[in-house]
Simulated scan of single mutants.
Amino acid sequence: MAAPFAAQAGADFVEGDKTFGGDAELGATLTTGNTETTSIKGRLDMKHEFGNWENQYLLEALYKEDTGEVTGKRYFGLIQGDYQLTNTRYIFVNANHEIDPFTGFDSTSTVSSGYGHKFIDDGKTLFNVEVGPGYKYKRLDTESAALVGYDSEDSWVAHGVVNFETDITESSRFKQMFVADLGETFEGRSETSVTANIIGALAMKFAVIVRYNDSPLADKESTDTETNMTLLYAF
């Protein structure tokens, strides 16, 4: 699931023609007593520019526990390199890996490459699209493999990303991103978020994430949703 290089608010480290910046997110919910639940969401998103390259490095983690039972666990890592052909056109290479045992798969790995175009990039609003071929490999967990009779599946996919970001006010920003992989099955991801600055480099972020798979395993749902309220620190 690609995440395109986006305009970054906050402090940047600049050395010659090199620029580095990013943001870190953390959110947690802990309850005790009659109801005991734990929910932790973390994210580290870093961006690096040098020469004609704009690179992104992303790590995400989600963990949920209810009365001693783990009800959600997801880890995701991504690296993407964008080679700028012009100010608006670029070629991207993307690789990502996800661990989410609640889907029936031990892991999912995807690599893709293709063409990206920035239709709007004026400092306030960013609208870009990426399209290209990709390859997806999934490894089933032991229980699912026993049910279907095989332990992995792979396919070529058509990979696409649509990303829109805009400033709502001087201190708040709206983002909407769609990611889709179309092959033997269709898998999509939508992330909608609003970020509002609190003070300095510290902000509050509200996000709704929807994941869709049109051919889930027999005992799984097609759609997963995730709603987060996190603190974000830009650096």
Score class of each variant (00 low, 15 high):
Ala2Trp: 01
Ala3Asn: 15
Phe5Gln: 02
Ala6Thr: 09
Gly10Pro: 01
Glu15Phe: 06
Gly16Asp: 15
Gly16Lys: 01
Gly22His: 05
Leu26His: 02
Gly27Ile: 09
Thr29Leu: 11
Gly33Val: 06
Glu36Tyr: 01
Ser39Tyr: 03
Gly42Val: 02
Leu44Ile: 14
His48Val: 05
His48Phe: 13
Glu49Phe: 10
Gly51Cys: 13
Glu54Lys: 15
Asn55Asp: 04
Gln56Arg: 15
Leu59Asp: 04
Leu59Glu: 12
Glu65Thr: 02
Asp66Glu: 15
Gly68Trp: 11
Val70Thr: 15
Tyr75Ile: 04
Phe76Met: 08
Leu78His: 07
Ile79Cys: 02
Gly81Val: 10
Leu85Phe: 04
Thr86Cys: 04
Thr88Val: 09
Val93Leu: 14
Ala95Arg: 02
Ala95Pro: 12
Ala95Met: 04
His97Trp: 09
Pro101Lys: 12
Gly116Met: 05
Lys118His: 03
Ile120Gln: 06
Ile120Val: 10
Asp121Lys: 07
Asp122Val: 08
Gly123Trp: 01
Lys124Glu: 15
Leu126Ile: 00
Phe127Pro: 14
Asn128Met: 13
Val129Pro: 15
Pro133Gln: 09
Glu143Lys: 04
Ala145Thr: 00
Ala146Gly: 05
Val148Met: 06
Glu153Asp: 03
Glu153Ile: 05
Trp156Asn: 11
Ala158Gly: 15
His159Phe: 00
Val161His: 06
Val161Gln: 12
Val162Ala: 13
Asp167Met: 11
Asp167Val: 04
Thr169Ala: 12
Thr169Asp: 15
Ser171Cys: 04
Ser172Glu: 15
Ala180Asn: 05
Ser190Thr: 06
Thr195Lys: 01
Thr195Ala: 12
Ala196His: 11
Ala196Asn: 10
Ile198His: 00
Val208Met: 09
Arg211Glu: 12
Asn213Trp: 00
Asp219Cys: 01
Lys220Arg: 12
Glu221Ala: 08
Thr223Tyr: 02
Thr230Pro: 14
Leu232Ile: 10
Ala234Glu: 14
